[in-house]
Nucleic acid binder design. Structure first.
Length: 137
DNA sequence: GCCAACGTTGGC
DNA sequence: GCCAACGTTGGC
């Protein structure tokens, strides 16, 4: 089982939207690094959901329900989507500021590669963020 | 609104 | 195949 973190602008699509709708096809990724991470996701992998631009915090957990398939919104190029379903919202959102203050989290993509929208996490990193969010599976 | 970081494009 | 110019993302 692998662990991941995805970013979304909440005014475009929020974790609350995912909870309401029950499922989302994660389309529109047009960055090769992010696409390759999508393709590496396996059914059941756990994914943290981060709100970018507004909120700036990890707000919930979702999981991969369907592994990658071609992005139907792509007019050209070789792009992929996966389907996510919500698992649970964090008891307490974990802010970017908090994450920046944790030495063990300095290597995550969220800190190191600001523009990356889909990134892998070590299990240890995933667990630390869950703890900070006062949330367990 | 600014700007740093990064990816992409296109001329050579 | 290099690299300058440009566009986009996203924190501040």
């Amino acid at each position: 089982m692998n662990h991941w973190l995805i970013k979304s602008e909440p005014f475009v699509y929020s974790f609350g939207d995912l909870q309401r709708e029950g499922k989302i096809m994660w389309d529109g990724v047009r960055n090769y690094a992010a696409r390759n991470h999508l393709r590496a996701m396996k059914t059941g992998d756990l994914v943290l959901f981060y709100h970018s631009r507004e909120g700036l915090e990890v707000v919930g957990i979702c999981k991969v329900e369907r592994e990658h398939y071609p992005d139907p919104t792509a007019e050209s190029g070789d792009w992929s989507v996966v389907d996510f379903v919500p698992v649970k919202a964090f008891q307490k959102p974990v802010s970017l500021q908090t994450i920046k203050g944790i030495p063990e989290l300095q290597n995550i993509g969220l800190i190191r590669i600001g523009r990356l929208s889909v990134m892998p996490l070590e299990q240890s990193e995933f667990n630390i963020i869950l703890e900070l969010g006062e949330t367990s599976l």
